[in-house]
Amino acid sequence: MEPIKIMWRQVANMARDAIAMLPQIGVAIVILILTWALAAGGRALVQRGLSRTRLRQSLQDLFILLTSIAIWVFGIMIAAVIVFPGLTPASILAGLGIGSVAIGFAFKDVFENFLAGIIILFRREMRMSDYIECEGIEGKVAHIAIRESHIRQTDGQLVIVPNAMLFKNPVYVRTDQKHRRVSIICGVAYDVDVDEARRVITAAVKDCQTVEQSDHPIQVFAQEFADSSVNFEVTWWTKSAPVDLRRSKDEVISAVKQALDDAGLEIPFPYRTLTFKEPLPLQRAVKDEENG
C-alpha cells in the first residue's frame, strides 16, 4: 500500500501545482491571442507600407513573413516567461542556441532550402514570369516561396523545385533580355552562286515580321561544305519567350524556302554515290539480248 500512497501523493502535488499555475496559464493564453492579433496587424501594416514601394512582390512577401515570425517569437518568449517564472530571456536564447544545433542537423535540407530561398528572392536576375532552365527543367517561374519554387513548363506541367537546387546549379534565364538570337542551317546546291544565295536568304529574313532589326543585324554566313550542299548559318534576333522563338523560326524557314524556290535556287536532297569493288552482272540486259 505504501507505493500507492506515494504515487497518490505525487499526483495530488502535481494537480495542486497545476491549479496554482492556472492564472499564469490564462495570462499566457491571453498573451498568445494578443500575439496573433499583433502579428496579423503587423502583416497588414507592412503590406500596406511595401505596396507603395517598387519592391518585387516576392520580396514583399518575404518581409511580411519575417515580420510575422519576429512577432510570434517575441510573444512566445513572453508567454513562456509568464508560465515558468524561473526562465529568463537569456536562458531561453541559450536554450535555443543549443537546440538549434541539433535541429540544424535534423533539418539540414529544410534550412538549406530556406536560406537559398531568401537569397533567390533578393536576386534581380530571376523574376516571376521569367523563363528559366536548370538541370534539364525548363519553364516559366510561376511562384517563388521560401523553401521551393514553382516552374510551369511549356507543356503545362508544374514542377516544384527545391530552392537549394536553383542556388547551387547554373540557371539559364531565357527572358533576362527582351530579345534572343536564333540560328538555323540552310543548304543550297553546289552549282548555286554563293553570293546570290546569301542575298536571297538575307532579303527573305528581312521581310519577316518577327525578326528584330533595329538593334541587331541579320547575319548569313557560308558555314561549311556538306555532303550535298553548301550550308549557310542564318542568324537573327527575335523576342525571347519560347513561343516567340518557335513562331519566328516557322516564319523565317517558310520565307527562306519560298524565296529560294522563286529564285530557282535548289535546296538539294542528300546524294549518295555507291561504288562496288566487282562489276555487277546485268541479268536483265543479258536476257534482253538473248530474246533479241
Rank of each mutant, 00 (worst) to 15 (best):
residue 1 M to K: 11
residue 4 I to M: 03
residue 5 K to I: 03
residue 6 I to F: 04
residue 7 M to W: 15
residue 12 A to S: 06
residue 12 A to M: 05
residue 14 M to T: 15
residue 16 R to N: 12
residue 19 I to N: 07
residue 21 M to K: 14
residue 22 L to F: 13
residue 24 Q to F: 06
residue 28 A to G: 13
residue 28 A to M: 08
residue 30 V to T: 06
residue 32 L to G: 08
residue 34 L to C: 15
residue 34 L to S: 09
residue 37 A to S: 12
residue 38 L to E: 05
residue 38 L to H: 02
residue 44 A to H: 11
residue 45 L to V: 13
residue 51 S to N: 14
residue 56 R to T: 09
residue 66 L to F: 13
residue 68 S to W: 02
residue 68 S to A: 10
residue 71 I to R: 02
residue 76 I to M: 13
residue 78 I to D: 01
residue 83 V to A: 08
residue 87 L to W: 13
residue 88 T to S: 14
residue 91 S to M: 11
residue 92 I to W: 03
residue 97 G to K: 08
residue 98 I to E: 03
residue 98 I to D: 00
residue 99 G to D: 07
residue 100 S to P: 02
residue 101 V to M: 11
residue 103 I to W: 10
residue 105 F to T: 03
residue 105 F to I: 13
residue 105 F to W: 12
residue 109 D to W: 13
residue 109 D to Y: 12
residue 113 N to M: 06
residue 114 F to E: 00
residue 114 F to R: 00
residue 120 I to T: 09
residue 121 L to H: 02
residue 122 F to L: 15
residue 126 M to C: 13
residue 128 M to S: 04
residue 131 Y to V: 05
residue 132 I to F: 08
residue 132 I to W: 05
residue 134 C to Y: 01
residue 136 G to S: 11
residue 136 G to K: 09
residue 138 E to G: 10
residue 143 H to Q: 11
residue 150 H to Q: 12
residue 161 V to N: 01
residue 161 V to M: 15
residue 162 P to C: 04
residue 163 N to L: 07
residue 163 N to P: 07
residue 164 A to W: 04
residue 164 A to S: 15
residue 166 L to P: 03
residue 166 L to A: 03
residue 166 L to V: 08
residue 167 F to T: 02
residue 168 K to V: 07
residue 175 T to Q: 01
residue 177 Q to V: 11
residue 178 K to S: 14
residue 180 R to S: 13
residue 189 A to Q: 04
residue 189 A to S: 15
residue 190 Y to M: 06
residue 193 D to T: 08
residue 197 A to P: 09
residue 200 V to A: 04
residue 200 V to Q: 05
residue 203 A to R: 12
residue 205 V to T: 02
residue 212 E to C: 08
residue 215 D to E: 03
residue 217 P to R: 07
residue 219 Q to A: 15
residue 235 T to W: 05
residue 244 D to W: 10
residue 249 K to F: 06
residue 252 V to R: 06
residue 255 A to P: 00
residue 260 L to Q: 03
residue 261 D to E: 12
residue 263 A to D: 00
residue 264 G to E: 04
residue 265 L to D: 07
residue 265 L to Q: 11
residue 266 E to L: 15
residue 266 E to N: 11
residue 267 I to E: 03
residue 267 I to D: 01
residue 269 F to L: 08
residue 282 L to A: 05
residue 282 L to C: 02
residue 283 Q to T: 09
residue 286 V to M: 08
residue 286 V to L: 12
residue 290 E to V: 07
residue 291 N to E: 11
residue 291 N to Q: 09
